[in-house]
């Protein structure tokens, strides 16, 4: 008897399985056909908390080096030189190695003025891995550290700075 129950059970379960798969034929496919067949660029649809490429707004950076200490794998390098006579501190270099960064978000939490923050950008393909070192201060420029009592400058749309940096690396004007 076990012989026939085996046959009946397998027939029924094959039929049941086929019914399920056939019913899937009439359901809407789920694929998001990035990058070309989607209504709006994917960066817009990601939530605000998304931890994408890092971006530093050097105008409101107070050069407190908190983010550099917080990063477990030394991805951020900031150099501040003190002008001897005018006792003024200038940020000479602010580099973030996006290739080595693991997007853990520990630096963003320590920043008092939210100068360094995550963007929703994720497509960071560049011809050479060296290009992924995002230099937020052009060599030779100097940036004045932001004093909290100064008036905060106009807010820029998140992701603009890093996107500009990446485009300049890829030769996109």
């Amino acid at each position: 008897m076990q012989y026939f129950t085996n046959i009946k059970r397998s027939m029924m379960s094959v039929l049941e399985g086929m019914a399920v798969t056939f019913s899937w034929l009439f359901r809407r496919p789920y694929t998001v056909q990035w990058p070309d067949k989607i209504p709006e660029p994917l960066e817009k649809t990601l939530p605000a908390t998304y931890r994408g490429l890092l971006e530093v707004d050097t105008r409101i950076c107070t050069a407190c080096l908190a983010c550099e200490k917080a990063c477990p794998i030394e991805v951020i390098a900031i150099e501040v030189d003190r002008n001897s006579e005018t006792k003024e501190r200038h940020i000479v270099r602010f580099d973030v190695d996006a290739a080595k960064c693991m997007y853990c978000g520990l630096c963003v939490e320590q920043c008092p003025t939210d100068a360094i923050h995550h963007t929703t950008l994720f497509a960071a393909t560049t011809p050479d891995i060296g290009d992924l070192v995002l230099t937020f201060i052009k060599p030779g420029e100097r940036a004045l550290p932001f004093k909290p009592k100064d008036a905060p400058p106009a807010a820029i749309e998140r992701g603009a700075i890093t996107q500009a940096l990446l485009d300049s690396r890829r030769g996109v004007e």
Partner: peptide
């Protein structure tokens, strides 16, 4: 380490 600090980069 491309993001070397002047005071001797620790081996990453």
């Amino acid at each position: 380490n491309p993001v070397e600090k002047k005071r001797g980069a620790p081996p990453s």
